[in-house]
Amino acid sequence: MALSTDHFSPSPDAAHLRARLSQAGLRATRQRLVILESLLTLPGHPTAEQVHRQVVRQEPSISLGTVYKALDSFVAAGLTRRVAAAEGTSRRYDADCTEHHHLFCTDTQEIIDYCDPQLDTLIREFFAAKGLQNFQPHSFSLHITGSKLANK
């Protein structure tokens, strides 16, 4: 079981960003490069607005609409995932596309990554035993809402 504490990631180099976009079948435009870099370096699960605030520091002409379009193309290409926010009002994005779950703290609005192979096994076994008719699960992600307990 692992909880991820999010920190700022070091900036990936341009070659790495270009390669990621190319592998996903996307052209490496200047706008996409800056947006992807911001998404990868911002802590946690940023909103499009947070990515936009970061992006305009480098490219002041990039609009919020462009950020949304780029993030949506990243989701469609498998570069990122869209995550529902705890408050349910804004879309948040997760650059980590590995299998993991999300814990939503209703007090802080924080989204915490949670990995537990034993839980994943239980979920797979549960669905295998249920034999869902005409449906084969390929991946899953739990979204659990709660509150952090204060350390005593």
Rank of each mutant, 00 (worst) to 15 (best):
L42E: 07
L42T: 07
P43H: 02
P43F: 01
P46N: 06
T47M: 08
T47I: 04
T47S: 15
A48V: 00
A48D: 06
E49D: 13
Q50M: 13
Q50E: 15
V51K: 03
V51M: 01
H52T: 03
H52E: 05
R53G: 12
Q54I: 00
Q54A: 15
V55R: 01
V55N: 02
V56L: 04
V56Y: 00
E59R: 11
E59N: 03
P60V: 08
S61R: 10
S63N: 01
S63M: 04
L64D: 00
T66V: 12
V67D: 04
V67K: 01
Y68R: 11
Y68V: 09
Y68H: 14
K69M: 06
K69D: 13
A70K: 00
A70C: 11
L71F: 08
D72V: 00
D72S: 12
S73K: 09
F74V: 06
A76M: 05
A77M: 04
G78V: 14
G78D: 04
L79G: 10
T80S: 15
T80G: 02
R81V: 03
V83S: 06
R91W: 01
R91A: 14
R91K: 14
Y93A: 05
Y93I: 07
D94H: 03
D94I: 00
A95M: 04
A95Y: 08
D96T: 07
D96L: 05
D96R: 11
C97I: 15
T98F: 01
H100L: 11
H102F: 15
F104W: 14
F104Q: 11
C105F: 13
C105K: 04
T106K: 08
T106R: 10
D107C: 11
D107S: 13
T108R: 09
T108D: 08
Q109E: 13
Q109F: 09
Q109L: 13
Q109Y: 05
E110D: 12
E110S: 10
I111V: 14
D113N: 07
C115V: 14
C115G: 10
P117W: 01
Q118S: 07
L119T: 10
D120L: 08
L122C: 10
L122R: 08
I123M: 10
I123G: 07
R124M: 02
